[in-house]
Nucleic acid binder design. Structure first.
Lengths: 386, 386
DNA sequence: TTGAAAGCGCTAACAC
DNA sequence: GTGTTAGCGCTTTCAA
């Protein structure tokens, strides 16, 4: 509790001894009167003007010191820093941003969201945050790419050329993303990645799930409360060009669960991979003898639809993401579990991170793991963004 | 996009036609120069001063109209409101709060958290929010009560006498809480309830779970993937004086799940109730023939501990809340599921609601249902507050 | 190297 | 009823 007094000597001591009452008793008592009369000030934090008064310099000098603008006598630097330290000065961000009267531009570099429910959700989280933080000067500029490398590479140019204060970025294509980030680091601008991470040690922030762990959890859900022999199928339905590593990490985690639990000897595994474009390759034989299916991306509904059409029952399916079609089969009881990645929250938290960094200039957690949310029919409710 | 111009005629038209370039090209081009020379202003939102100029009144008058302070000619009210409407005026909350230079006091009225892990988490969420919003003038005053009616009633007096701008409140004791809220409504101050809700129609905000639905989900988890006969035990370990209805709602939801699924004919139910103080009443006979146990509050660990000590295996347990002791038995595989209420998030969101209401004067969702989070050993990670 | 002062947009006290 | 003005705390320009 900081008590700033312009009064001196006995009056100062007198007032100081009553600070507690003054704080807890806001009625117009004698002390409040004294405060007002002498134009004293009770506040949690000291202001630049007060620091200036205490250090016998002008507010301008204090400001120069705070912002390391130089051109100040070392003597004053030390004096002011000591006061800042002692009184625990905190800059008033309301006043600061008001005076700065500045817009903070954020480049949002994501896949085009039309027809991609998951990315639509990400964007709605981003937009929610944009609306909320617009009053603090946050402005967004979007750079969308089609879900292929060529489009991605083309947009990279534009993003690099664009002048801004922060970047929100989904590194879908691994190698290109690594190169892009390397290049982008020259700008020395805060970057936050969503959906998938590039590496832990590049100093950039990440909002999203731990892909390995989500696969691990899927393993547990598949194994859950089953005593008899199980034939498990890992069903990969991938895009034409798929460089993203997320689903590989999930499969990795999935197998690891069974490796870690060698008491689960009754599980046998097989894998099938088909291209997104070749859904008609599905056939009944694929599911002969299968008890459980793990779909390591959002396309569980494709498997579910096929099983439904062909009247194949009793297979446990687990997948990712609350796409409408996935929910449909969850509600029908054909898909058993979905792991939700909370895309709206990811988008929101990504922008929120940059807001904290740019506007509040706060230090924030670098990695924000979105919880692995297990969704069943009974705990599904349509996503809300905060 | 609003473009405020003090210039007129041909110059105005000229500038207007170039607004787009001005926005996207921040280099010092001729148009920027024009803007500066005539002291024009490009901004998303009009200011009070500008409104005043457009309406031929003073800023003071505009302010009076915006705040409904009265004492303004109807003619001006209409004129100004029309301009506000047309240009989509939004008050600058940075400037507003800076000028107000006001503290927003929030009374936090919760159970004493010592020895109550769940409430400790709630408080840490509250404190997280307090730290974050302090810079906007949010100040908290705590009113804690012991977990009994007498203490609760005594604190009610203090809370009612306390002058503040908002209230965060956990209505543990139903009847007293209803009476208290009725009384408190006279103050006409925003109130947010956490943990448990009083009623949907009192206009107060709520942050917490849907207790009924959480029981319903527990039903599903108990029933999951089990074909054979099941004997289900609902184990209630209650406090000496327990007026809270949350666990009753959960039991309600639990039974409802089985009512809604009459195909589940192989489930039989029984109930046991013991007082918190009489844990030594537990005996092996209670668990004869039992396959599954539902503990509708945070005390699953008590059952788990007993089963472990007495070497009773193969019983599925489901409970609530990530207390350390619950987690211990979750990790040991004795507790199968825990439903997490995310207490930190509740505390945080409660304060966040009041911040939005008081500081930002934003309309916010009245009810914020915390997701029913299913926790297994594999997706447990220690709680983080945002 | 430093101080003075204007201004960010809004509020509220005061004068007319 | 209405306009004027002095802040709120910080930034930044300009002059010294």
């Amino acid at each position: 509790m900081y008590f700033c007094v312009y009064a001196h000597g006995i009056l100062q001591m007198y007032i100081k001894s009553y600070v507690k009452q003054l704080i807890f008793d806001e009625n117009n008592n004698i002390f409040t009167w004294v405060i007002n009369f002498f134009n004293l000030k009770i506040s949690d934090i000291i202001t630049i003007k007060e620091i200036a008064a205490l250090a016998n310099v002008s507010p301008g000098t204090v400001d120069r010191i705070i912002h390391n603008r130089g051109q100040v006598a070392q003597e004053n630097v030390d004096k002011v820093n000591a006061i800042i330290e002692e009184y625990g000065y905190k800059r008033n961000i309301l006043a600061s941003n008001l005076a700065l009267n500045k817009k903070f531009r954020i480049a949002v570099f994501l896949p085009k969201y039309e027809n991609l429910e998951y990315w639509k959700s990400q964007i709605s989280g981003v937009e929610k945050a944009a609306a909320e933080f617009a009053k603090f000067g946050i402005v967004l500029d979007y750079f969308f790419y089609d879900f292929n490398k060529e489009s991605f590479q083309k947009q990279i140019e534009k993003v690099i050329d664009f002048d801004c204060d922060g970047l929100l970025f989904a590194p879908i294509f691994y190698e290109d993303s690594v190169r892009f980030l390397k290049e982008y680091e020259k700008k020395n601008i805060p970057v936050v990645m969503i959906d998938s991470n590039i590496s832990e040690e590049n100093g950039h922030a990440y909002v999203g799930q731990d892909a390995f762990q989500s696969g691990y959890l899927a393993g547990r859900l598949i194994s859950f409360a089953v005593k008899n022999e199980r034939q498990v199928l890992i069903f990969k339905i991938a895009r034409e060009i798929e460089s993203t590593s997320v689903y590989l990490q999930r499969i990795d985690g999935f197998y690891s669960y069974f490796k870690d639990h060698d008491e689960l000897t009754n599980f046998k595994f097989s894998e099938i991979t088909i291209k997104d474009s070749g859904i008609d390759q599905l056939c009944v034989e694929m599911f002969k003898g299968i008890n459980s299916i793990f779909v390591p991306n959002s396309r569980a509904y494709i498997v579910a639809r096929f099983l439904e059409k062909n009247n194949i029952n009793g297979i446990r399916i687990i997948g990712f993401d609350l796409l409408n079609e996935n929910i449909e089969y969850l509600n029908k009881g054909i898909i058993d579990f979905l792991i939700n990645q909370r895309p709206e929250e990811q988008g929101y938290m990504g922008i929120n991170y940059l807001y904290k960094k740019l506007v509040l200039q706060e230090e924030t957690e670098q990695t924000n793991y979105i919880p692995l949310e297990i969704i069943l029919k009974e705990n599904y409710s349509p996503a809300k963004v905060r």
